[in-house]
Write a protein that binds this DNA or RNA. Structure first.
Lengths: 124, 124
DNA sequence: TTTATCATTGACGTTAACGTTAACTTCAAT
DNA sequence: ATTGAAGTTAACGTTAACGTCAATGATAAA
């Protein structure tokens, strides 16, 4: 059971971020006798999931939808499969970005060779 | 020579976007006798560059800096060496981005497996 | 020439994801 | 018991990248 600051520090975020995530329904930590937030391991696990999702370019709203679908639909797996498909679509998009960057890199290398050639011409 | 709407439509953006890009110094189209913006092929080329940069996740500010550097390099032909140096730096940066994206893709596949595993647990 | 669009500048509105401040309350250590 | 750090809610502030008027001028089609 950790406090809000301990949790925040261990995940590299601010307390405000944790309160905000709770505000939009992404986290639901417990409360102490004095009404202070207490974060259990399940909360930490969910936070880890959220931060990973963010890293992968999902908006908090998208992450919320995926988590809610998962929570609400434990018996019906149809929605869950759709969540997975959604993620796989994202992966394919990333693959596209990678290949485009590779193209850009090759373009730039060609552009550079043009100048390197000019430089050599001036040396001679 | 195209009007603002023609240009916007052909690039899939709105006129507001083009005015905004001009406002922050990303585009500098000419003006007609009646003070209306006219977009030449150079402007279209630059717009293409901007949109490609956006697609790769660069902010407009980052794109602005890159374009300014690019312009400096092109006008100062005496600084060929520095141009090449800059280009090589950019290529190394792009290589970093590519490898980061590849890592991201792998991690994301792991993230999805979290859901897929839960799916299998429900099956049993 | 008269519409019917289209364009211009200026200014305020919008959304996401928090930051910041205020005015308290609770906790931990002395 | 006191004090200083940390927590609470509520509400307003911030930034990027435009969206959306409003008032007015320019242009193209019939």
């Amino acid at each position: 059971m950790k406090s809000i600051r301990e949790t925040a520090v261990s995940f590299g975020v601010t307390p405000r971020t944790l309160r905000y995530y709770e505000e939009i329904g992404l986290l639901t930590p417990g409360r102490s006798s004095g009404n202070q937030r207490v974060y259990a391991s399940q909360d930490a696990a969910r936070l880890k999931l959220i931060l990973r999702g963010k890293k992968y370019g999902f908006s908090l709203e998208e992450i919320r939808e995926m988590i809610l679908l998962f929570d609400e639909d434990r018996s019906g797996r149809k929605q869950l499969e759709r969540s997975i498909e959604y993620g796989e679509k994202r992966i394919r998009e990333i693959e596209t970005v990678i290949s485009e960057f590779q193209l850009l890199k090759e373009e730039m290398e060609g552009w550079l060779m043009h100048f390197e050639q000019k430089l050599k011409e001036e040396e001679s």
